[in-house]
Amino acid sequence: MSTTHWKDYTLTGGDAVADGGQPGWYTPALDRKTLKGLMKRSDRPALANYGLWIGLIIALGAVTVATWGSAWGIVWLLVYSAVHQSATARQHELGHGTPFRTRWINEMFFHFSSFITLSEGHYYRWRHARHHTHTIIVGKDPEIQSPRPPEIVSLLINLFNLKTVVLTARDFLRRAAGDLGQGRHFIPEGEQPKVIRAARIYLGLIALIVAACFVTGSLLPLLLTIGPRVIGAPLYALLHFTQHAGLDEDVHDHRLNSRTIYMNPVLRFLYANMNYHVEHHIFPMVPYYRLPELHALIKDQCPEPKHGLVDAYRDIVPTLLRQLKDPSYHLRPALPAAAVAAE
């Protein structure tokens, strides 16, 4: 009789892959001077991009308020929330510190984006650093979205971040009380007070938003600030899930555990070019606005990108369904013959 082995993905789980220190990841051939040029930051493209984003939020927010009470109010709230939650992709980029050359501008947008996505910045940075060191390594990466076998019901519920929001509320309360949960495995002791203090500030700000709703007798203060974390979630759930879903785990080659997808300019704007995910993981220091150039330079050494979200999900959905019965199954992108897999 065969038994299905369900892996333990927690950071203290028995399925943690043992490796000594910093793993050696596959790196494509790229002239050092070219790479350094790509890593250079400039405030100008980021200010133009973020200026447009903030402008859209203000304009769409104003239209939502103006039409609130009618059916159009709901429509505009949906549009507003979809644009607002571009913050999830932006927080990620800002967390890397790459969009702006001027540090304080980067940090200002980072903490703003962190709050409106309810993803506290200090904790996020430590967790995400671990994700980049040990990308999709079981028992080491705290950001594995698609464990095997997949948790389909949980994934569907979380299309609207419903599970995430509940867990976030629990985590903020715990952290505010000094319990960092899994964070104690990747946040140095000296940095932990910052996370605890930030959780308390977040809870205070959320209480102010709720109070504003009571004072104004309207849900708008909530709907326009942190409400989009739920209302605007589905687009980003669909985008983020494509980054690694269905691909291999426990391999030190981002071409085998990450996915690049060609997308239209609107989605790339909202998603901060994170569709170039293989490239982002191989060279996380390259700002999002240089990723298309990086892609053009190394695409011959990487698998063929998927052509749009539908194309990606044509791979992902059947893979997840098959993994329900066979958790060992995964996609294996074809690597160019000249670029050998570094497994």
């Binding site: 930051r41 790459t98 650093a129 996380p284």
Partner: peptide
């Protein structure tokens, strides 16, 4: 890594 003014930024985790 990236040198900006008098700062060196680590290529892995910044």
């Amino acid at each position: 890594g990236l040198v900006m003014d008098y700062v060196i930024e680590c290529p892995m985790h910044n």
